[in-house]
């Protein structure tokens, strides 16, 4: 439970940005939650780290740019974006050029993070 009595929420994005519409659905949920002033943090797990690839061009496949949507998170006061360090290494994502600032977590830290929320929503 967050300090103000509201339920804390971690949204976990586990899918690649353009392979399905789940990435978009997850990000829309993040933004809606923040818009209603509910505490929400974000975790990119497994294939989800591909959403952090720099220089995305969704336009060429007729889709909105997921990277651009991620870059807007600080405007909604979403300041905690966590990322699965092992997956970043596996996919060789250049996290220094990612669209949003993130904090890398190892497996042990991921377990601790996920245990600390009232709700986990997986996309």
């Amino acid at each position: 439970m967050a300090a103000n009595g509201k339920k804390s929420m971690l949204i976990v994005l586990r899918h690649s940005p353009y392979g399905s519409s789940l990435a978009k659905a997850g990000l829309d949920t993040v933004l809606a939650t923040a818009a209603f002033s509910q505490p929400v943090d974000l975790l990119l797990l497994g294939d989800g780290v591909l959403q952090l690839q720099p220089d995305q061009d969704g336009h060429r496949i007729g889709q909105k740019n997921v990277g651009r949507q991620l870059s807007s998170l600080p405007l909604y006061d979403i300041n905690h974006v966590y990322v699965d360090a092992e997956a970043v290494t596996r996919y060789n994502v250049d996290i220094s050029r990612a669209p949003v600032d993130t904090r890398m977590l190892d497996k042990e830290e991921l377990h601790q993070l996920m245990a600390g929320y009232d709700h986990l929503l997986g996309f």
Binding site: H15, T33, L121, G122
Partner: peptide, 21 residues
């Protein structure tokens, strides 16, 4: 309805269970 109904469901439920994804 809008995503606000999901946000409201989270705020007012002890458990929110996701199916799929």
């Amino acid at each position: 309805s809008g995503l606000g109904q999901l946000v409201d469901a989270c705020a007012n439920s002890d458990r929110l269970i996701t199916f799929g994804g």
